[in-house]
Amino acid sequence: MNTDNLDLRINNADDEDLPAPPKKTMPLFYVVDNSGSMAGDKIQTVNAALEEIMGLLDEISKSNDDADIKIGCITFDTSAKIITKTPVSPADFKYEITTNRGLTALGDALTKLDWMLSRDHFLKGDNFVRPVIIFLSDGAPTDEWESKLKKLSENNWYKYALKFSFAIGKDANEPENKSILMKLTGSKSDELVMEVNNAVKLREYLKEISVVASKFNTRSATTNASEDPEEMAKDVKKEAKKNAQVDPATTGKNKGKDPFGTNW
């Protein structure tokens, strides 16, 4: 049981003082496919994006009186690994995700996420608000995932979280694989699945989704806690797409085309 908050307040406060409500914490989870097919440009882009994102999230956290942001991270290849045993501030998240020639154990990742989403484990001690969860994958899972997702869906932290999926590359955007990523968002439409087929899109959308979702959710820690998470997530995506610097060319021979190509 993490009693850091409690003990510090007892240490610092006069016995006669009533303990002030602790600042809220918004947990932001990244569930990252680091199977063999993510090697090279894809995982490098994820790492570069996360490094940039952590700087931005640190600023948001520091400037926000209502809530801090803390990071949780799971990677999954042949098995899933919890990278952050306890919630980590963005400034302290300095983890470089690597790939082996591994498979894609999404089911194991979902099991571990379910375990983390508990006040007895990752979410203990602090005044946590609903999480933001971002899934990133470039292909089909290779383990049994459906029963794990069903179990995870009974977890209220997951149920009320803002959830997004990133379909990285051509394989992930095949209808069958995209449907899996859609199910991870808890939505019946694929509106919360971000299709990214090049490094620029991945970096920009991941950055904007992370930043906008964090701003929305830390603000809504006190005002909009009742809003439907799917509707909130759609609003986040709309805002994020507006901000991302990935517009198709508007003039010239490439007008309307993706200026960054479809490398993946």
Binding site: K81, I83, D92, Y95, T98, D143
Partner: peptide
């Protein structure tokens, strides 16, 4: 605060489910 140095996987606690 952060389980492992760069590049290595985290230790899991004993009651963490196995793959």
């Amino acid at each position: 605060g952060l389980s492992e140095p760069q590049g290595d996987a985290a230790d899991l606690s004993e009651d963490m489910p196995e793959p």
